[in-house]
């Protein structure tokens, strides 16, 4: 999407008046739709629709050998796929740069043990651990990808069931595990402290959250902050552009405030969700 100068000025004036093009205030989000447990073959999944942004996240679990320098920790890996369905720009390798940028930001946001404790994923120290593959599919891009992706990832991890390991035997160098065959007997991860990302864009003199695709084009600079329990796990800039230190401080404060609210709202919604839909006559 390309905007002409007049359109940009229109958006800019709207932000200045605290009345954005879609009627929102500067610190207001667009409505969101969240579904969990949508992919049958995944251990946990979610789909988030934030106005025109559509993200599908699925978590797959495999066993792996822990890395040698972190023998008592499991692994988590993020992979972002920019589908060409979203915009024709993603065709071929076009979306690769954006995909690695989002995946890297998630990796750094989840890196602190306080935000996400990998030691829960260890099965046998130095021998076996769970590895979570978090696959993120961008189905439609309507701006504010970081926020949508981080919320969907948190919801998918919340939804993830890890099979219960009943016993682990060490037979020579072979690790044998016995996994519960009852599909309802699963372990849940502690996802409450997992980070939520908020993008703050500086448009004109003001900072706004949740920019739409058109507003992203008018932004002179954008910050992405990952907030976990009132603390920052990652701060980075998205796109080129620079900020004055006072704007930076201001946007960090705004990001923290909005991030905490967003996190609370998400956890509330996730807690409301029924643990499992019961379908069929046998259960």
């Amino acid at each position: 999407m390309n905007l002409c100068e007049a359109e940009k000025t229109f958006i800019l004036h709207g932000v200045e008046e605290n009345f954005r093009v879609d009627g929102r205030e500067r610190s207001q989000y667009r409505p969101m739709e969240l579904e969990t447990n949508v992919v049958a073959h995944a251990f946990g999944s979610s789909r988030l629709r934030l106005a025109n942004t559509d993200v599908l996240v699925a978590v797959k679990i495999e066993t792996d050998v822990p890395s040698v320098d972190q023998p008592d920790e499991g692994k988590i890996e993020f992979f972002v796929d920019c589908s060409a369905n979203a915009t024709p720009d993603f065709e071929g390798r076009g979306g690769e740069e954006l995909a690695t940028e989002i995946a890297n930001s998630l990796t750094s946001a989840y890196r602190s043990t306080k935000a996400f404790n990998l030691s829960k994923l260890c099965i046998l120290k130095g021998r076996k651990c769970w590895k979570l593959y978090v696959d993120i599919l961008l189905l439609e891009c309507g701006g504010n990808l970081y926020d949508a992706v981080s919320l969907a990832v948190k919801a998918a991890l919340w939804n993830t069931d890890i099979p219960r390991v009943l016993a682990v035997n060490l037979d020579g160098n072979n690790v044998e595990m016995e996994v519960s065959d009852n599909i309802h007997e699963c372990v849940k991860l502690d996802i409450v402290p997992a980070p939520v990302m908020v993008t703050i864009s500086k448009i004109g003199e003001q900072c706004v959250v949740d920019p739409s695709a058109a507003e992203e084009q008018c932004a002179t600079a954008s910050m992405v902050v990952a907030v976990s329990q009132d603390r920052f796990t990652t701060v980075l800039q998205s796109g080129s552009g620079s900020l004055h230190p006072s704007t930076l401080r201001e946007s960090l404060k705004l990001g923290l405030e909005i991030g905490s609210k967003l996190d609370q709202a998400l956890i509330e919604v996730l807690k409301q969700k029924p643990a499992k839909k019961q379908i069929g006559f046998l259960m």
């Binding site: 306080k114 910050m223 976990s228 920052f232 796990t233 701060v235 980075l236 230190p245 960090l252």
Partner: peptide, 23 residues
Amino acid sequence: THEQISEFYQLGNLNLDTLNESI
């Protein structure tokens, strides 16, 4: 000279006050 922060990148787990002091 322009006092413009062109990149700010943080890792770990910090609160707002620490971040402000660090800046």
